[in-house]
């Protein structure tokens, strides 16, 4: 297990290193960017930039200093706003985004798994078809369209939910649903096919031969095994929710990190884009690692196989 985790950690660091390096050198090459001579910024920002990036130093010193800053969790100043750093933005926006993300993660997993199980247990019956039509719709609609439509009908036309902003739990429902729609559809499909596969396994026949009822077989033997691929999907799922949040937060006027990121893209606030990207990458890689470790605990085969090697 230990060895497994350290190996994963190593890959994670290498991926992270790659993305930090790529963003750094792309930024250096960006015309009109922080490193270019023809950039047009107020002197105050110029000063901040110089302090953080050491603009007059050779590139390898700049690069090395940048790596050190990132390691110290310092993502640098904004390219557009005086007195604002990327860390400020993260501290302010991320808690909001985190809450929204967790809420939609919960919705996506619980409803998705439930739909998938119902569909598999009623394979080729109407419940199956209904759940799968729902799921195919879910993965066919881009999130910004889904969000706009939900907002238009449920909030503006019907008035069931607040249209926008981030004030009460009520305000979170619609954005969380919009954000959860696509991952939920993916999970439903994944659970269904995994459940169908599990139900065809020999050990299900064994359970039946023991005289267990369909309900007992489903609960005790099928679901636990069918859920394993869903757990491995949690890594990509967090990436989906994260990138989805850019769009959703923008549409619903939520002051999260996602909408700040989109604003910085529109403003070409290069240093903010760079810093937030690195932060997001760390976040995603960490969640993938967490999922991997969690999987090791859920699947006894991995835990022990890794354990023997690890000691």
């Amino acid at each position: 297990m230990l060895r497994y985790i350290s190996k994963r950690l190593l890959y994670m660091l290498m991926s992270l290193f790659l993305i930090v390096t790529v963003t750094f050198f792309l930024m250096r090459a960006a015309p009109g960017g922080p490193f270019s001579s023809e950039k047009q910024v107020p002197p105050e920002i110029e000063k901040n930039l110089n302090e953080y990036y050491g603009l007059d130093r050779p590139w390898y010193i700049q690069y090395f200093d940048y790596l050190v800053s990132i390691a110290k969790w310092d993502f640098g100043p904004s390219f557009k706003y005086k007195g604002q750093t990327v860390n400020d933005l993260i501290n302010e926006g991320f808690p909001v985004s985190f809450f929204l993300g967790m809420e939609s993660l919960l919705i996506a997993i619980s409803i998705g798994v439930l739909l998938g199980i119902i569909a598999a247990l009623n394979h080729n019956k109407w419940q199956d078809y209904a759940a799968m039509v729902f799921a195919v719709l879910g993965i066919s609609v881009p999130s910004f369209i889904m969000a706009s439509i939900l907002q238009y009908f449920l909030a503006i036309k019907l008035g069931w939910f607040p249209v926008a902003r981030w004030e009460s739990l009520q305000h979170t429902v619609l954005p969380a649903l919009a954000l959860a729609a696509m991952p939920m559809a993916f999970i439903a499909r994944l659970t269904r096919s995994s459940m169908l596969e599990v139900l065809g396994n020999d050990y299900i026949r064994t359970a039946k031969a023991k005289g267990l009822s369909q309900g007992q077989i489903t609960v005790k033997h099928a679901i636990r095994n069918a859920i394993l691929p869903v757990v491995t999907y949690l890594g990509p799922l967090s990436a989906q929710i994260l990138t989805g949040s850019f769009v959703i937060e923008k549409i619903f006027g939520i002051p999260g990190l996602g909408s700040h990121f989109v604003t910085s893209i529109t403003n070409r606030d290069y240093t903010t884009i760079m810093g937030v990207t690195v932060f997001y990458s760390i976040l995603l890689l960490l969640s993938v690692l967490l999922v991997d470790i969690a999987y090791g605990f859920i699947d006894p085969r991995i835990k022990l196989a890794g354990g023997k090697k690890g000691e």
Binding site: M14, L18, A239, T243, Y280, S281, L284, L285, V288
Partner: peptide, 9 residues
């Protein structure tokens, strides 16, 4: 390693 790099970002 490439696979670990967040695609959309």
């Amino acid at each position: 390693i490439l696979y670990g790099v967040p695609y959309l970002l």
